[in-house]
Design a protein around this nucleic acid. Structure first.
Lengths: 254, 254
DNA sequence: AATATACACTTATATAGAGAAGTTGTCAAG
DNA sequence: CTTGACAACTTCTCTATATAAGTGTATATT
């Protein structure tokens, strides 16, 4: 099984040293392109790193970096001592992100947040459990509606920890501001967040707020944010009309 | 603003050269840990690469690789000529994957796929558009139900291209097998897939199949798979009871 | 005072190797 | 036929260095 005689089929492109794009990125693109064209099929072994060095006239570290890029992108996988192989398509590698949700904020100057309700309420059992506080402890309860072009997009409810002894109002306002979660603002007090997506039937009140027919299904995006002491700061959920937010992604190449 | 005198606060850990874990991964872990502990906060500038080299006694390329790892993980960002900075939490970086869906197949020996219907049907307008064929062209139409522990989990409908002149039955069966999409099988004929998640109200028939109350909301996962000629091979959608499949993720550290 | 230049930083890319470690096939010894 | 040593491959990690390029500051010039 010695792959000696036939030259590796990577002769269609060359590395352009004058290009603004670095060599390692060019090589990664070339290999990805060859895979997309079907020259290398899932399961096939790629030319070895040494072969790629000779073929493209670049050093081992640069080839290595290209391969690592492709590994990170899930295009190939490597096995020490054996070689580099093209990965087959896997449905489970599909990733859905919230970019579209961010775009709603950043790209829409005609977006508007209408505050429906803000008040201090005692935490019920569920809110207390989620926020790691005692039942009956005070929390800030917020309800608001995001509209765009006069159309309601989503409805947001959230509970925020309220600690009168340490009035970090400003910080809480950051969390409250919503934009801070999307914009690259310095919401430096948040360490991590837990997010869940669920579906739900809107109740009549929600359907009316979102001007949706009733009954209707909606996305429910639940969130809990934690500070750097791993204490919950806020718990809440967004409710979307699914015709205004969609989760889409691609698996595989191109 | 010269950061000269005070030693960088990375003194709690060292690189263990005898460890099985490579140096670059150890350094990335150390930095990530320091950020999680709040030693470095979002917006803070990390020690420069040269400083890290001296501090940990490793070469620039190794430090570089650690930083690149952290960039890929979305933990830090770099700006040429200025420095490396800790990224604040961003909601839009949240990624939801289908791992849980894969687990349903691989980890459940007590799972079962019940074929409800397989037959050749003429493509209607929508199916023809999605599959890039003519209205009226024959397609293979499949309906099936996945159950686990006698509980219905999801309902799957799909149209597959049917080409009598080139009977690639085996290949089509691969696509049909479902498992091939999850297992690392050599479904080498698939190049890419387009996936959309939506919500939907189940119709009475679907609710009955999924043994769900009616009306109820459900996840709808639509998929189109393409071959290496960029021709659609299949179009269909999964319908999940949302209490059997949840999308969860974390943003931020730990 | 305003502008231009030089310098000291930073990250970014690339080179040319070295050795470690895993895999596979060959070939000789048993 | 089986086993074991070995060679030849592969990827993996890391060093040490060089050059390029962006940023900001201090200094010199106009």
């Amino acid at each position: 099984m010695a792959k000696e005689g036939p030259a590796p089929p990577l002769n269609s492109d060359q590395i352009d040293r004058k290009s603004a794009q670095p060599a390692y990125a060019q090589l990664a693109d070339i290999i990805r392109q060859q895979i997309a064209e079907g020259i290398f099929r899932p399961g096939d072994q790629l030319p070895s790193e040494a072969q790629l060095c000779r073929r493209f006239g670049i050093s081992p570290m640069t080839v290595r970096r290209s391969i690592n890029l492709l590994i990170d992108q899930g295009v190939v996988s490597t096995a020490q001592g054996r070689g580099t192989f093209v990965k087959p398509l896997e449905l489970s590698t599909a990733n859905f992100d919230l970019q579209e949700l961010e775009d709603l904020f950043t790209n829409s100057s005609n977006g508007d947040i209408k505050l429906i309700d803000v008040r201090i309420v005692s935490a019920d059992e569920r809110a207390a459990r989620k926020l790691g506080i005692q039942e009956g402890d005070p929390t800030i309860y917020i309800r608001r509606l995001f509209t765009r072009d006069k159309q309601p997009i989503f409805y947001h409810r959230a509970y925020l920890i309220y600690d009168p002894t340490r009035p970090i109002v400003e910080a809480e306002m950051d969390v409250t501001s919503l934009q801070g979660l999307f914009a690259h603002a310095d919401n430096a007090l948040l360490k991590r967040g837990q997010l869940n997506i669920d579906t739900a039937l809107m109740n009549p009140e929600e359907a009316e707020l979102l001007e949706s027919p009733y009954p209707a299904a909606a996305f429910l995006l639940e969130h809990i944010f934690y500070d750097f002491n791993d204490h919950p700061i806020s718990w809440g959920w967004f409710l979307f009309r699914s015709d205004h937010l969609r989760f889409s992604t691609q698996v595989g190449l191109k």
